[in-house]
């Protein structure tokens, strides 16, 4: 599988990742991405037909927490880092559309 990553694709993944991007940047990344993806394609050489994916690397044990309420953090502490707050809420600009 050989593919180049054109600027349209770069802009698409930038949008997926909510990264603002200029045309020049898209141009630059397009060339770099194509080279990197080309390099990654070497994985196609490996026969993985009967190989399970290794999603959990180590501790395959159940780790569960008892359903006990722990003290929460102080709201004012939380708000120290928040760019905008109002009446106990975190404030953001207008939200359009659904999730």
């Amino acid at each position: 599988m050989t593919q180049t990553i054109d600027t349209k694709t770069v802009k698409h993944v930038a949008a997926l990742a909510r990264l603002g991007i200029t045309d020049e940047e898209a141009e630059k990344f397009s060339g770099q991405f194509s080279a990197i993806i080309e390099y990654f394609n070497m994985l196609n050489e490996v026969d993985t037909d009967n190989v399970p994916p290794a999603s959990d690397i180590a501790n395959a044990e159940n780790i569960l927490r008892e359903d006990d309420v722990q003290p929460s953090m102080n709201r004012e502490e939380f708000f120290k880092n928040a760019p905008k707050t109002e009446r106990g809420y975190v404030k953001v600009p207008t939200v359009l559309g659904d999730e």
Binding site: A17, G20, E25, P93, V95, L96
Partner: peptide, 25 residues
Amino acid sequence: KDVVDIYLQTRHEGFGDEVKRRIML
């Protein structure tokens, strides 16, 4: 105008090129 603008602008200005590359890839 919209919360999405904050996402786009903040991440555009806040992240360096290598971070952007890896996030996009």
